[in-house]
């Protein structure tokens, strides 16, 4: 059964979807960068306990910026889901986020995004879009 919604125009639809993707990419890259700086959480927990691990994470400014970006992404997703059908908004923003993250991880985190990982990002991106059909 189709949901009746206050549908957005093409421009507004894609602006909201791209906003969700960009803020999600910023959040992922900032938190991944923060976790890389903080180090292995399993080791920190073994030495300083759970509270020590939580303290190490929440005292990182980069992590807090990442959470802020994720919160923005979360609210823009809620906003988008109320305007755009979930069958378009969810896979489109997820697919853009997967490809954008592969590029951002290579540029900002200097991860070794080799052919295998690019292929994985593209396969997952196309797969997510097909799943929504």
């Amino acid at each position: 059964m189709m949901r009746i919604q206050d549908h957005a125009g093409v421009f507004e639809t894609w602006v909201t979807i791209i906003t969700v993707a960009l803020t999600a990419i910023a959040g992922d890259v900032l938190t991944a960068g923060a976790m890389r700086r903080i180090g292995d959480l399993d080791e920190i927990r073994a030495h300083s306990g759970l509270m020590g691990a939580i303290k190490a994470v929440v005292s990182s400014k980069m992590f807090l910026l990442g959470v802020l970006s994720m919160a923005l992404s979360f609210f823009s997703l809620l906003f988008t889901l109320s305007k755009v059908d979930v069958s378009l908004a969810a896979p489109a923003s997820a697919a853009l986020t997967f490809i954008g993250n592969a590029a951002a991880a290579k540029i900002f985190l200097h991860e070794n995004v080799d052919r295998r990982r690019w292929l994985a990002a593209i396969f997952v991106c196309v797969g997510v879009v097909l799943l929504s059909q």
Binding site: D28, V29, T31, A32, M35, R36, I38, G39, D40, L41, D42, F98, N101, A102, A105, K106, L109, E111, N112, V113, R117, A120, A121, V124
Partner: peptide
Amino acid sequence: LSWADLTFVL
């Protein structure tokens, strides 16, 4: 993310 790459976890 503390022990694996972002492009591995995602």
